Simulated assay, not measured.
Amino acid sequence: MSFTFPSGLGNQPAPLLSGKPRALGRGKRLVVTGVVIALGLALTIRIATSGAINWSVVRSFSFHAAILDGLWMTLELTALSMVIGVVLGTLLAVMAISRYPAVKAASRLYVWLFRGTPLLVQLIFWFNIALVFPVIGIGLWQIPINSLVTPFAAALLGLGLNEAAYMAEIVRAGINSVDKGQSEAAVSVGLTDTQVMSHIVLPQALKVITPPTANQTIGMLKNTSLVSVIGAQELLTKTEDIYARNFQVIELLIVASLWYLALTTVASGFQYWLEHRLGDGSAPNLALKVEVQS
């Protein structure tokens, strides 16, 4: 059996399929948008008018003193944990590019350990650290660990040390993004390794480091809710304490969710502004300028 192609057809290359999807027409976009909005409104109205949620409870507890206290601790934990994570993560990143194998191995071991185990497990571990080290001190001067590692301290240790492992990778990526020729030029004019890192490499790496760090901060805001398992009095723990007494579980969880949404929305807006500022070239020019004086 043979096939005969029309004249000239067999010599023509097959048309290439474009990988770019065709844009929807204006009418189709309006229809899709209208359907999505209608479904969203229908779901919202259904929930709001179902009668299953007592919205007066939501309003009355949104600015309750206990909720605001928990909100303040959430902000404290977020800020302090990120400070620990950024500082320790930067140190670990510098260690990871060290010329000494033992230092490099120590950094990799830390990152492997803290990234490889769940944050919840780490929080519970630090809260129960007294089972491993009941006291700390030398000779007659000894202090019970339980008096030092309070729920807040355990939460700070768990969140901060875990965050450091992730920040180490972020900072290391930022350092590696800087042209190595700049470091070599700085060394050639007599700068020490510490001066090169602090004055040349890290300032330029900030453009790469800052956006993911802002994203980690948003994640930290939500991760603080995990410390409720060890009794730290942050937003979710305060919420649980209240609904354990009045049994308004869903209403109090809505209150907590609204506050988390408010915080992450503000943080996301700041992140968007920061990324836009860094991306459009309006950030300070941190290029290396080495002047050789004769």
Rank of each mutant, 00 (worst) to 15 (best):
G70F: 05
A287S: 15
A232V: 12
L288I: 08
K289F: 01
S50L: 09
S177F: 01
I53F: 05
L120A: 08
A287I: 04
H64F: 02
L68V: 12
P134E: 11
V189W: 02
S62P: 07
I129G: 01
D69K: 12
F3Y: 10
A38L: 15
Q248W: 12
W273C: 09
R26K: 14
T44V: 15
L123Y: 10
V201G: 04
S268A: 14
P15Q: 12
S2I: 11
I230A: 04
S225V: 06
I84E: 04
S81D: 08
I129W: 01
D241V: 12
A96M: 09
V31Q: 08
I145K: 00
A105Q: 13
L113C: 12
S60L: 06
L131D: 15
G281R: 03
L286Y: 11
L148M: 14
V201H: 05
S56N: 13
T90D: 00
Y243K: 02
P15Y: 06
T213Q: 06
N176E: 15
L286F: 08
V189D: 02
R108K: 15
N11E: 15
Q271R: 11
V58R: 01
F63N: 01
I129C: 05
P6D: 14
V94F: 12
L252K: 01
S198K: 09
L77E: 11
M73V: 14
S62Q: 06
G181R: 07
V249W: 11
P284W: 00
R22V: 15
L71W: 09
N162Y: 10
S268M: 11
A262I: 14
I67K: 02
Q271T: 14
W141F: 15
L252Q: 07
W55D: 09
A65I: 09
